[in-house]
């Protein structure tokens, strides 16, 4: 089969970007989407042109490195599928594919389809952890955890940090990513001691990174390759309100406003 690609090309963060059209002939339907790009890139390189830069690593849907918007859908048309696991058989002969990078102020374009997602790392650094100093742990079976809780925590922990939620959100909001981590840790006994501090500082960092706000569109869930559910956002909202209003018990009077 053959497809036409309209690809966003941008030399670096500062440069002007534009769409460039490429023809991909003899595409094999068994190819993955990224393998199709590989083939296009090989021929570009041999013609002395710069290949299309795109992020990828594991190519099996788990590292969260890959991710482009294909015909208006982050990671492409297939549900619960990362770009690297999308196969060309999901398209048909003669299709025109518009390929764009994630679009968000907090995810500046680095080159072509590659964006800078370190904002996610900074949200994590703000509190996305349990402060369990290495060596100090008690036996793993000391605290039994209801299966439903740990399964639910696992549902949230399955987030691969790809950023498709931000890309899909009409408001470029990072609520789903942040809520997934807050819920993962908040659902487990190990996460309780820092639960309030965590939600306060992670949300503060999320806002400071310049993501949009959530108006409950639900596009993030629909685009999420790991089907992280928006119910976690509701969970985070509740946690946040509780945390804010119960904060600073020891600073008389100033309960509000100090993280």
């Amino acid at each position: 089969m053959r497809v036409t690609l309209k690809v966003w090309r941008q030399k670096d963060a500062k440069a002007e970007g534009r769409f460039v059209t490429y023809e991909a002939s003899e595409v094999n339907p068994e190819m993955s989407f990224l393998e199709m790009l590989d083939v296009v890139n090989e021929s570009l390189a041999l013609e002395g042109e710069d290949p299309i830069a795109f992020d990828h690593d594991c190519r099996e849907g788990i590292c969260g490195t890959c991710g482009v918007v294909i015909n208006g859908r982050p990671h492409g048309p297939r549900e619960r599928t990362t770009a690297c696991q999308l196969h060309m058989r999901s398209f048909s002969d003669g299709d025109v594919l518009t390929i764009e990078p994630w679009r968000a102020d907090a995810f500046p374009v680095v080159r072509d389809l590659v964006v800078d997602r370190t904002a996610f790392d900074r949200i994590m650094a703000a509190g996305g952890f349990v402060s369990a100093t290495i060596g100090g742990a008690q036996d793993g079976n000391t605290i039994p955890i209801p299966k439903e809780d740990s399964d639910l925590a696992m549902d949230a922990a399955a987030c691969i940090g790809c950023g498709a939620c931000v890309a899909a959100c009409p408001n470029a909001s990072a609520m789903l990513f942040t809520a997934a981590k807050i819920s993962h840790l908040g659902l487990l006994p190990q996460g309780q001691p820092e639960r309030s501090e965590r939600v306060r500082s992670m949300v503060a960092r999320m806002d400071a990174e310049g993501f949009g706000t959530c108006t409950n569109h639900g596009e993030c869930e629909a685009a999420c390759p790991k089907a992280i559910r928006v119910e976690f956002i509701a969970r985070m909202n509740a946690d946040f309100v509780r945390a804010k209003f119960t904060a600073g018990r020891r600073e008389s009077g100033l309960a509000e406003g100090n993280g």
Partner: peptide, 9 residues
């Protein structure tokens, strides 16, 4: 990377 004091509600 540093934690910032969470702003008001």
């Amino acid at each position: 990377a540093r934690m910032l004091p969470a702003p008001g509600f």
